[in-house]
């Protein structure tokens, strides 16, 4: 007689903990049942935790953030089999996990290059030292790509994190399990509580609350349909929230420091030079 398997309950990753939706609701996808259906209040809590965590995360040395992301990659490597399985098995799944690892390592190594890649010392026509430095935009909502479900989350997530942002991510609606599973990697990979939230649920329900949330600084709309994007942009205007558009097909997954730079703000600082 074989042992009865212990099935894992899918949970949201919120404030560094694994929780059910405060609403108690679940939804089902083609392959999975009982996926937590995050509510607007779960979103609110996630943003609150991210806002609280953001200054500390941003003020860590970039080198340190890079090492944390590398640690995340290590954790993902250790759980490769589990991810391959949740991605449906097969060679494609393996390649996606590899690509996710590649992205984490890429941005782990990008964290302490962003100032040099995007900042500058500026030759102003006066007795001033003038320089421009990037800063994280703050708390970013990430509408992760639906497909590929893991990579569509990992690439923009790592890009935003390496620059010092906190991220509230809506994982793929139709294939939420890889995204939710990533929470376990993040939690064991030294990502501080609150820095990342992973919410599964219905985009039709959550996106209006994302667009109208006045304490979100930006939303990465990489996974939005054109209709969702339009609605999001209309709402975002109320708080001048930055809406990072999906961009050309495939561009969102092509590793480049620019993916991180678009989640940064440029700050220009002036100081006189005198005795």
């Amino acid at each position: 007689m074989t042992a009865l398997a212990v099935a894992k309950t899918a949970k949201l990753y919120l404030g560094g903990a694994f929780v059910r939706s405060e609403s108690g609701r679940v939804y089902r996808t083609e392959v999975a049942a009982n996926i937590p259906r995050a509510s607007r209040k779960d979103l609110r809590e996630a943003v609150r935790a991210a806002r609280a965590a953001q200054p500390g995360w941003a003020r860590r040395a970039a080198y340190n953030r890079g090492q944390v992301l590398y640690r995340v990659a290590e954790m993902l490597e250790g759980r490769r089999r589990e991810f391959v399985a949740v991605l449906g098995g097969g060679r494609g799944a393996g390649r996606e996990v590899d690509a996710g690892l590649e992205a984490l390592v890429y941005f782990a190594g990008a964290a302490d290059k962003l100032s040099q890649l995007s900042g500058s010392v500026n030759d102003v026509a006066g007795p001033y030292f003038n320089f421009t430095v990037p800063e994280p935009v703050g708390v970013v909502a990430l509408v992760a790509g639906e497909r590929p479900a893991l990579l569509g989350l990992v690439v923009p997530l790592a890009a935003a994190l390496c620059g010092g942002n906190c991220v509230v991510a809506l994982v793929a609606e139709t294939a939420p399990l890889p995204g939710l599973l990533l929470g376990e990697v993040l939690a064991t990979g030294d990502i501080p509580p609150g820095v990342v939230a992973l919410l599964s649920g219905l985009r039709s329900e959550l996106l209006p609350w994302v667009g109208s949330h006045r304490d979100l600084d930006a939303v990465d709309a990489v996974g939005c349909t054109p209709e969702q994007l339009t609605a999001l942009e209309e709402r975002a205007a109320d708080s001048v929230m930055r809406v990072l558009p999906p961009g050309a097909a495939g561009a969102a997954l092509r590793l480049s420091p620019q993916l991180a730079v678009r989640t940064l703000e440029m700050k220009t600082i002036w100081h006189p030079v005198g005795t």
Binding site: S120, N122, D123, V124, A125, G126, Y128, N130, T132, V137, D217, V240, E265, M266, K267, T268, I269, W270, H271, P272
Partner: peptide, 21 residues
């Protein structure tokens, strides 16, 4: 987006200007 330290309202073509929030 712009911080003036020990000066204020300086502008220059080479100095990026623009806002947060």
């Amino acid at each position: 987006g712009v911080v003036w330290a020990n000066t204020y309202n300086q502008f220059d073509a080479a100095a990026p200007f623009g806002g947060f929030r």
